[in-house]
Amino acid sequence: MSAASAPEFGCLYGVGVGPGDPELISIKGLRCLQQAPIVAFPEGIKGGPGIAEQIIESWISPSQHRLPLSFPYVQEQSTLERAWHRAAEQVGQFLKEGRDVTFACEGDVSFYSTFTYLSQAVRALYPQARVETIPGICSPMAAAAAAGLPLTVQRDRLAVLPALYRLEDLTAVMAWAEVIVMMKVGSVYQKVWSLLDQAQLLAHSYVVVQASTTQQQIYQNLQNYPQLELPYFSLLIIHVKVTKEKALPNSRGLSRT
């Protein structure tokens, strides 16, 4: 086939499918998913379905081609870059044929998202391809809704720590932020608990596990929970300063929805 008659490149769509509840996908995102000839998503662990795949399962049909992509849970940059490159090549095989690919991304596509790296790799390999994004609900918003609290009010300054490896990071942020969100807090929870105890902030902090899913758990009044064993998708919200407009509810310990 000559270059002149080659089909136009397809478009890579990134759709944020929310934190877990399948009904939290936007109407625009749902339409994009259901119209997609190829639906891509991060593959699950040990052959099981990944979170994004579970979220969209009830919305897509058997006639749509499913494209699981491997993104390893490691921090080694070279390993990650190889995985992004390999995933971009898999997506590119369809884009070169003029076929669109929709990538389902847990949470929001621009908030610490795998789609960011995939889209960058696709743009580098296939500059002719278009990339479009459709936003979704990210976990801090879902966690605040689950707890029945506003995340911020008035002039509150919000800080988000994607993963904490040094307590100095949290201490520094506490000096200027009114609200702090700590993502994936499980691996450092006990150390953070001690710091919050010293700062007398345990009563104004809460943990949400797997927000909006059937496995959701909410821990309030963390004075009672110094030794929590938390899964990977656990989030801690700290209200450094509590205003009248953002009064925390009475402590209820652990609740499930």
Rank of each mutant, 00 (worst) to 15 (best):
G50E: 11
A3V: 14
D156A: 05
L202W: 06
G29T: 05
R252D: 07
T102L: 08
G186Q: 11
I237A: 03
G10C: 09
L30W: 07
Q210V: 12
S234F: 06
E245P: 02
F41V: 03
H204L: 01
Y126K: 10
T79Y: 12
F71H: 04
D197C: 09
V209L: 13
V188I: 12
H85A: 14
T114R: 02
S255T: 14
R157P: 13
Y112C: 14
T114E: 03
R66C: 09
P19S: 11
Q210R: 13
V192G: 01
C105Q: 03
E23Y: 04
S119F: 02
A147N: 08
P49C: 09
V15Y: 00
Y219K: 09
P42T: 03
V185S: 01
L228H: 07
S187Q: 14
S70N: 11
Q35Y: 02
Q75T: 12
H239Q: 09
H65W: 13
M182P: 01
F103G: 00
L254W: 11
S119I: 01
I27Q: 08
V74D: 11
S110A: 15
G186N: 09
Q128M: 07
E97P: 04
L170F: 02
S194W: 10
P37D: 06
P127I: 09
T114I: 05
Q90P: 07
R31H: 11
T114Y: 06
S187T: 08
S113C: 06
G48Q: 15
P62C: 13
G186T: 06
A83T: 00
A144D: 07
E23V: 11
G44D: 08
R155W: 07
K241D: 07
L248D: 05
L12H: 00
Y126R: 04
S212T: 15
F233T: 04
D197G: 09
C32D: 01
Q35V: 09
G50N: 08
E106P: 08
R155P: 09
N224R: 14
S194L: 10
V153C: 12
R66D: 10
S205A: 13
E57L: 15
K191G: 04
R66A: 12
I60C: 10
T152E: 10
S251M: 11
A211L: 09
D21A: 12
A147Y: 10
V185G: 00
E132W: 02
V15L: 01
H239A: 07
G186Y: 02
V74Q: 10
A147V: 05
K96V: 05
Q227T: 15
L235S: 03
A6M: 12
S234N: 05
E229W: 13
I134Y: 03
S78Y: 10
G16V: 00
Q215I: 10
S234I: 02
V207M: 06
E8H: 08
L69Q: 04
V15G: 00
Y117L: 07
A211I: 07
K46L: 15
Q200Y: 11
Q223D: 15
D169G: 05
F9T: 02
E8F: 03
G48R: 15
D169A: 10
L118A: 04
A3G: 05
S26K: 01
D169V: 04
R157K: 15
A52N: 03
T133A: 13
T133C: 11
Y225T: 08
I27A: 10
